[in-house]
Simulated assay, not measured.
Amino acid sequence: MDETDAAAGQISAEAARIYEDFFVPALFGQFAPWLVEAAGIRDGDRVLDVATGTGVVARAAQARAARVSAVDINPGMLAMARKLAPELDIRQARAEALPFADDSFDAVTCQFALMFLADRRQALREMARVCRPGGWITVSVFAPWPRSPGYNDLIPLLEELMGAGAAEALKVPFCLGEDGALAQLLAEAGLEGAHLGHRTGEIRHPSLDAWLETEIGGWTLAEAMTPARMTALKRAAPERLGKYRHGDGSVSFECPALFAVTRA
């Protein structure tokens, strides 16, 4: 796996484990109930979570007594999702070619994954196809990286230590946060009139080292980070990233995001 895989969101089985054990409680877990709430998911609704990863949103929808299906292209992520929720309908599939009939769901969700898809417009068209007329399609993306605390310091540091390819790979999750980018993409896919809203979470890690190990080991750069690079990164972290560290050594910073809710 190289930085091209990283930019497409592909990760290994070990990275998927780290993602679920550390990244979900540090970040993604808090956003999942917000996304499900924004989607208006209720008891008995048929819900599809697209690019589900380890299934954090699928499980949040399940907690609302919804009937949940989920898809992802990444085998490592799917193995963890099935382990955590074996009762759910979890399938390996591309977002651009969903294996479901038209009008199969009352709601479709996609959390922090649209930016990684090979054909974003086609994926959105597929979400609309499988969602019943009048159903809700709800997606979330991160704010631009220069306006995202933590990452606006980490990304330049990665570029210095690992090169432009690594930095660009870490910028990918933030690429749809620019003003108007998500609304334009939805409109180009035929989804007009989306309601856009901002939510700000908080990223929390027990230490600087834990942040770096989770950020790299549990995300898209896992296979590109050598032990020597990680040592260099940790050595530089106190000076470059120390402003996010508290007196007890823990690390936290805001995570701004954009939610879009639109009718199919």
Rank of each mutant, 00 (worst) to 15 (best):
D2L: 00
E3M: 04
D5F: 05
A7E: 13
G9P: 15
G9M: 14
Q10F: 13
A13P: 05
A13V: 09
E14R: 11
R17M: 01
R17W: 04
D21K: 10
A26D: 12
G29W: 06
Q30Y: 10
F31N: 02
A32Y: 03
L35Q: 13
V36D: 02
E37C: 02
A38R: 08
I41T: 00
D43G: 01
G44D: 03
R46Q: 14
D49C: 09
G53Q: 06
V56K: 05
A65Q: 15
A65Y: 11
R67W: 00
V68C: 00
I73N: 00
N74P: 01
L78P: 05
L84V: 01
E87L: 08
D89Y: 13
P99V: 14
F105L: 07
V108M: 04
V108T: 10
A113T: 05
L114F: 00
L117S: 08
A118R: 09
R120E: 13
M127F: 11
A128Y: 08
R132C: 05
R132N: 02
G135T: 00
G135P: 00
V141P: 13
V141E: 12
V141G: 15
P144L: 09
W145S: 09
R147E: 14
R147H: 15
S148L: 08
G150H: 04
L154K: 06
L154N: 06
I155A: 04
P156M: 06
E160V: 03
A166T: 07
E168W: 13
A169G: 09
L170S: 08
L170W: 04
V172M: 10
P173I: 06
F174D: 04
G177A: 04
L186E: 07
A187D: 12
G193R: 07
G197A: 06
G201P: 06
G201C: 11
I203H: 05
R204C: 14
R204H: 12
H205F: 13
H205S: 06
S207Q: 09
S207R: 09
W211M: 14
W211I: 06
W211K: 06
E213R: 09
I216G: 02
G217E: 01
T220F: 03
L221R: 00
E223W: 02
A224S: 14
T231Q: 13
A232H: 14
A232G: 13
A232M: 13
L233N: 05
R235K: 11
A237M: 10
E239M: 15
Y244S: 12
R245W: 01
H246E: 15
H246G: 09
H246W: 15
D248N: 14
S250F: 10
V251K: 10
F253D: 12
E254D: 14
L258N: 00
F259W: 02
A260Q: 01
A260V: 03
A260Y: 02
V261P: 02
A264L: 11
